[in-house]
């Protein structure tokens, strides 16, 4: 929908241009009087509608990269481009979900999902007028994630998995082109997590957004991604770029195939602790 407005030159050219590009991105900061390098000249590009994961040891700066895309953290060294433009602040075409679902406790599920539309233009301007349409869009999303019957429930009435699903709906309601996921399922139990993978895959295929996932779970990364970047310990750089060519939609049975296992071993080999 937005593509056509931003790229009148044609779909094909637009498809080939990376939607996100990291160019020589570094991050240093001072701790106890010592200068620490967290990220060391990281460069990679993410194609439109791709699902990309970042994995690596704790403290290697995965979340930092995500925060740079969201505009929550300024990029001091190097540049992050969104559709060819350097990112200098929050972008309305980015949706974000954290490990903690951070739903607003005073809003019910539906109201929580609608929140971005009350803030992001042009929806904010049209919110009163198009309220019914927005509500319907939110209800459609909630139905996709199996929360159709929980619209009027408050966060304290939902389970951890349900809250996270609502949080994903909120991240997607304003039809962002980039979906950022910071360990969104990290706090869930193993079985719920696997359910969430399938649900997230369905949402991603439905919305055709570009997704960038930070995770510690290698199976999760393999299940969901087109490309996985393994970051090395500090000062981090990209240790491995792994393309995952498993067919879509992926199923949990695929996790038990030799091919999946082979990729898993390859990935694990490249992860080293700090």
């Amino acid at each position: 929908m937005l593509d056509s407005q931003l790229a009148p030159t044609g779909q094909a050219a637009d498809q080939r241009m990376p939607i996100l590009e990291f160019q020589e991105v570094s991050l240093e900061y001072e701790m106890h009087g010592r200068r620490m390098t967290i990220l060391d000249r990281i460069s990679f590009a993410v194609g439109r509608s791709q699902f990309v994961s970042l994995v690596g040891p704790s403290g290697c700066g995965k979340t930092t990269l995500l925060r740079m895309v969201s505009g929550l953290l300024p990029v001091e060294k190097g540049t992050v481009y969104f559709q060819g433009q350097p990112i200098r602040g929050p972008l309305k075409s980015v949706g974000i979900a954290f490990q903690n679902p951070v739903l607003l406790p005073w809003r019910n599920t539906l109201q929580n999902v609608l929140l971005p539309l009350e803030v992001v233009q042009p929806h904010k301007r049209q919110f009163q007028e198009k309220r019914d349409r927005y509500t319907k869009a939110a209800q459609d999303l909630l139905r996709t994630v199996g929360l159709a019957n929980f619209q009027k429930h408050y966060p304290w009435q939902l389970s951890g998995g349900m809250r996270q699903r609502a949080s994903l709906c909120r991240a997607l309601i304003h039809q962002p082109e980039v979906l950022l996921l910071d360990e969104p399922f990290g706090a869930l139990d193993a079985f719920t997590r696997e359910e969430m993978w399938e649900m997230l895959q369905a949402l991603w295929q439905q919305t055709k957004c570009t997704a960038m996932l930070v995770t510690h779970d290698l199976r999760e990364a393999l299940f969901l991604s087109d490309v996985i970047y393994v970051l090395s310990p500090r000062p981090s750089n990209i240790a491995l770029e792994l393309k995952v060519n498993l067919p879509r939609p992926r199923t949990l049975e695929m996790c038990f195939t030799d091919e999946f296992h082979h990729l898993f071993t390859e990935l694990r080999k490249h992860i080293h602790r700090n």
Binding site: S70, G71, L72, G89, P90, L91, K92, V94, I96, F98, N100, V102, L104, L115, P116, V119, V120, R170, H174
Partner: peptide, 14 residues
């Protein structure tokens, strides 16, 4: 107020 709660809104450009 939890920082993440503010981040949700900041990331939307609030």
């Amino acid at each position: 107020v939890e920082l993440e709660m503010q981040d949700v809104l900041k990331a939307l450009g609030a």
